[in-house]
Amino acid sequence: MRLAFPLARRSALALLTVLALPGAWAQAPAYPDRPIKLVVGYPAGGAVDIVARTVGQAMSVSMGQPIVIENKPGAGTNIAVKSVISAAPDGYTLMLAANALAANMALYQPAPFDAEKDLVLISQVGRVPVVIAANPSVPYNTVAQLIAAAKAKPDGIAFASPGNGATPHMAVELFAKAAGIELQHVPYRGGGPAITDTIGGQVPLVAVNALEALPHVKSGKLKVLAALSADRTSIFPDVPTIAESGYPGFEASVCYGLVAPAGTPKAITDRLHAEVQKALGQPEVKARMTGVGGEVTPGSSAQFAALVRSERQRYEKLVKETGIKPD
């Protein structure tokens, strides 16, 4: 009994000594305390890369840490997506994903991932409409004229796209089904080569996002027949939408959103969502997006998840009906 008190006192003193050590009461570092990696599944200089750098720059200023873009193209963005899924869920590896996130779950079998389970869908960022453009020498200038020409010569009119299963390819296939026409698809490895061959006359039409078409339309090397968007795009204000061309309710845009690995703490994803909304509200970011033919689309994480789900269902139906295969 005599030894009990001294022993207890020694234990208490030892505990007090540990608690008194520097950092014993220190909290975990506030997020973020180091640079954040933002993965892009496409080469530098493309539409997704430009959007990532625009939004990433605004977020880095606000968050006080650099956001470093890492371009990781290949396998229709599956390489990039899988690298993010396997990354530590700590908020330091993110991805700016596009429609391929939804399309690839339908195109590749078995599905390479389940976006809603393997990732946290943080926020939609923006969208850029797909446009159908043509070599200036082709005899049609409107969607109605294109449809008439295609019906007169089934499967005789070709269109180039950035690749099998790319958003522009899927968009034109959806349009062709709605219009009751058949077009011959010529896949390329990226929008650049598809545009080059359209300008060169190897194919009459090309489907790409408005950002990629813009400089070539300005130079007179391409003409735009229609924007596959709900509203007219600011960079082609005189070009009718596909809805105005007789197909109301039809829309096809390249959509972008921020995602993180599943298991990322909610406090971090909430912070990232708030930072995206803040960035999208900045006049400079809006101007930059508008300047390249897009628009900012702020909204909740639930809205972004609903978009991915609906796009997946739409692509699954199209792939089943057309037998589209990825490159």
Rank of each mutant, 00 (worst) to 15 (best):
R314F: 04
P298T: 02
K325A: 12
N209G: 08
V51D: 11
R232D: 08
A44N: 04
A274H: 00
I85T: 09
D238C: 06
S62R: 14
G291K: 05
E173N: 08
A306E: 14
I157A: 01
V224W: 00
V308N: 06
D197A: 10
P32T: 04
V276Q: 02
E251F: 03
Y247C: 08
A144E: 15
L272M: 03
L146N: 10
L272C: 01
Y31K: 12
L119K: 12
I324M: 00
M95V: 13
P187D: 00
M63R: 00
I69Y: 06
V39P: 03
G45H: 12
V296K: 03
L107G: 07
P32A: 03
P73S: 10
L16T: 05
F113R: 04
S137P: 02
G126E: 07
V217G: 05
L107V: 10
D155Q: 11
T269F: 13
H185G: 02
S86K: 12
V81W: 03
P29H: 12
I122S: 09
K37D: 13
R2Q: 15
G41H: 01
A102Q: 12
T290Q: 10
P237I: 07
G180H: 04
V206F: 08
V224D: 02
P283R: 06
P129R: 01
I50V: 13
A171G: 03
L222A: 08
T322S: 11
T290W: 06
K266W: 11
L13M: 05
G23Q: 07
S83M: 12
R312I: 01
R2L: 15
L174Y: 06
T167V: 05
A75N: 07
A103Q: 13
G200W: 02
G294Q: 00
E284A: 15
S83K: 02
T264M: 08
A115F: 01
P298G: 05
A24F: 12
I132W: 07
Y108E: 09
M105E: 14
P326N: 03
G249H: 05
T196V: 15
Q124D: 03
G293M: 04
F5C: 11
S310E: 14
A230I: 09
T264A: 11
M59E: 11
P110E: 10
A115P: 01
V276R: 01
L94R: 09
V18T: 13
Y247D: 14
F175Q: 00
A207G: 13
C255R: 14
E244M: 15
V40R: 10
V51K: 09
A149D: 11
D114H: 07
S301G: 10
A305Q: 15
K37P: 08
S310G: 09
F236V: 02
T290A: 14
V254K: 11
V143G: 08
R2C: 12
Q277R: 06
A262E: 04
E295D: 14
K223G: 04
A262P: 02
K72L: 14
T167F: 05
H273G: 09
R309N: 12
P261C: 09
I67M: 05
V51R: 04
A87P: 01
V239L: 07
P187S: 09
P22T: 06
H169L: 03
L16V: 01
P154Y: 02
L174F: 06
S11L: 15
I122N: 11
V48A: 15
L15Y: 04
K177M: 10
A160W: 00
N71I: 11
Q282W: 04
G293V: 01
G56T: 11
Q27N: 13
